[in-house]
Design a protein around this nucleic acid. Structure first.
Lengths: 156, 156
DNA sequence: GTGATTGCAAACTGTTTGCATTTTG
DNA sequence: CAAAATGCAAACAGTTTGCAATCAC
């Protein structure tokens, strides 16, 4: 019964999820992708090859991939979800002007003493470095007095 | 002209914003508040004293307070804004089950070498520690295999 | 063949906007 | 008294849901 595997999507065979052409297109788009696309980014990119693709399928698939640890969901962009296909543990540089997100592949030691844990069981961490990306530095529009954790009306 | 200041709200006189009863009610609610309320939380709390309060005013006021550095906006909760009235720089413990957020008043040294900065000008940082809060640990519903940066269907 | 996935449209949640009215400084 | 804030309702953006048709295994 394990014969004649269809070539389409064979490289995703052992992911433990049912492979549809739509899912393969999404996986192809995400593979090695170091951007941090929103659901709409994924939708637009995949739509080119799959004109019948629907938003629901994008959301369904991203949710499935998340359940299987193949993408992480980021909250760095207020008002919309962003997805991270980089499976290596890492942190993020976030441009407070255009909300561009870039990976920071640096490890930090972040010990939290029991008395500072408030009884939490800590399972992971993630650092957001806020600042201005090279492109936005050039443009120099508006002022740069964004709060570290503040909100920026996303310009896109 | 600088005489007979109205007692109402005198303690907020020098904030540089126009004081209305609604704003004072919101400021009273936020002062010393170590929770991380959503706009709805603020609305509900203030509505008790101000039955005419509208959502628009809550959003407007929180935006104004943010502009003046009196609250920060958090993106830790997907799908909704959370606000942080604690003016001291700090980090956060985030319960991946109930999305409770607790302050971590610990300082970390987080140097990022030029070659890891991707040309960004870094102006601040914020650490999210993910885990399970004491209450959710007790409940022990569902599995705890949440991704560090993953999304949790908020149970509230 | 059967249970899972798709695609559409409608429903929903949280946020923002327009504007007449009221209020602060 | 001018400029700004309020409150309402309608508009909006992003996400989720229900369900019939289709598809992977």
């Amino acid at each position: 019964m394990k014969t004649d595997t269809i070539p389409r999507g064979e490289k995703y065979r052992n992911l433990g999820i049912k492979l549809t052409p739509q899912r393969i297109a999404i996986l192809d788009y995400l593979e090695g992708n170091l951007s941090h696309p929103s659901a709409e980014d994924v939708y637009k990119a995949v739509l080119r090859k799959y004109p019948t693709m629907s938003f629901a399928t994008v959301y369904n698939t991203l949710e499935t991939l998340k359940q299987n640890g193949m993408v992480a969901e980021l909250t760095a962009d207020p008002g919309k979800k962003r997805f991270d296909p980089n499976p290596r543990p890492h942190h993020h540089l976030i441009c407070t002007r255009c909300r561009r997100i870039v990976d920071v592949q640096v490890e930090f030691r972040l010990p939290v003493a029991d008395r500072d844990r408030a009884g939490f069981e800590i399972t992971g961490n993630h650092i957001e470095f806020f600042g201005t990306c090279p492109d936005c530095k050039k443009r120099t529009y508006g002022s740069s007095l964004q709060q570290a954790a503040g909100y920026l009306r996303s310009s896109g």
